[in-house]
Amino acid sequence: MPLHITDARNCAIHYKAEFIDKYYKVTTTSNSVFILKSQEKQFPHLIGIEKSHYQRSSMRASDVYDELLKVSPHLPRTVLSRNINESSKKGKKIKNFTMLKDSFFSDSNTLCVFYNELLSTSRLSHVNYLFSNYKSGYSSGWIYDTDSDCCRPVTWIDESTGTQTDKEKYYGSQTLDLIAQIEIFDSSTDNLIDTYVCKRTIKDYIHLIGVLNRNNMILKIKKKKVHIIIFHILKFLRIFKFSIKY
């Protein structure tokens, strides 16, 4: 079934509610802290609308976002076609856009990858940090903005229907950190809305070790707050193919 402009509008509504009206402070187990703040101008690219397409119609990225928030949005067909194949790259981004937050906001399966494109055979451009759910296959790439001292969304990836290799294709030889806590803030007031603490079981750590080993990754941890449970599992399994960075 083809997707329509109303589906893109639903993406804009979700983006406003979860990424414009809110921002996130992500703390990892190594005490790295990331402020994830989104802007209107990043939205079109996240749903697969190319910059050249809306610029050809004398539109800015924020214009596309504002138009899609209207009750009856209208965009030139050169910007957004009326019938979008849901199996296409753009169609998948639009169809599953509400899962974008799942890339960093899932209980035990989300990872923070310090992404270095020079180490990856499957390269992502302009991505400093990749938040990824290795079970669902949803990932989001973020770039650090020095002016605002926060991270901005660059891309989001949907490998939900792919193999486990597809879901992990950007992990090779990368440095990995684990998400410990996520704080949600109101963008207009900076008031704390909620705090979410990630919990992991022994089974989760066993799965995590598999991810690390398969992709020859480096696990980043804080020496004084080592997850002792990981080392107990490693000792039991006698598996230590990945590296640890303090």
Rank of each mutant, 00 (worst) to 15 (best):
L234Q: 10
K90E: 14
E168L: 11
G141R: 09
V71E: 12
M217L: 13
H232D: 13
I239T: 12
H14V: 01
K93M: 10
T146M: 08
S132V: 13
A180P: 04
C112A: 08
K224P: 00
S32T: 14
I13L: 02
T189H: 03
S132Q: 11
V26W: 02
L219P: 02
S30K: 00
F231Y: 11
S132H: 09
L119A: 02
T28I: 08
G137Q: 03
Y65A: 01
N128P: 06
N215S: 13
V71Q: 11
R82K: 15
T165K: 01
D145M: 05
S103E: 11
I20N: 02
F236C: 13
F114V: 13
H4L: 00
K22R: 07
Y65G: 00
K37I: 03
S136N: 14
G210W: 15
T189F: 00
Y115T: 10
L219E: 04
T121Q: 15
S72V: 06
D21G: 10
S106H: 12
T195L: 02
T201S: 14
H126V: 06
N191C: 09
S125Y: 12
I209H: 07
Q181W: 09
H227N: 11
L124P: 06
L3Y: 00
C11H: 06
K135Q: 09
S120M: 11
I229K: 07
Y196N: 15
K70F: 03
R82D: 15
K220C: 08
E168R: 10
Q181S: 05
R60D: 14
D190A: 05
K90L: 13
E183N: 10
D190M: 03
L130C: 07
E67L: 06
H126K: 15
P153K: 05
T155P: 09
N133H: 10
Y138E: 03
K89W: 06
E40H: 05
S136Q: 13
N96A: 04
S140N: 12
N133Q: 08
D7Q: 08
K16P: 03
I184M: 06
L69R: 11
A12T: 03
N85G: 06
G137M: 09
Q39F: 04
I143T: 03
L176P: 04
I47F: 05
I218Q: 09
D63V: 11
E40P: 11
F97Y: 15
L192P: 00
Y134D: 06
K92F: 11
D186P: 05
Q164V: 12
H14D: 04
R9G: 00
I179C: 04
E117G: 08
N83S: 11
H207Q: 05
G141Y: 12
D102F: 01
V113T: 13
L118W: 09
S140Q: 07
N128D: 15
V79I: 13
K70Q: 05
Y144E: 13
K223L: 12
D66I: 09
N213D: 08
S125V: 08
H74Q: 13
F236D: 12
P73A: 03
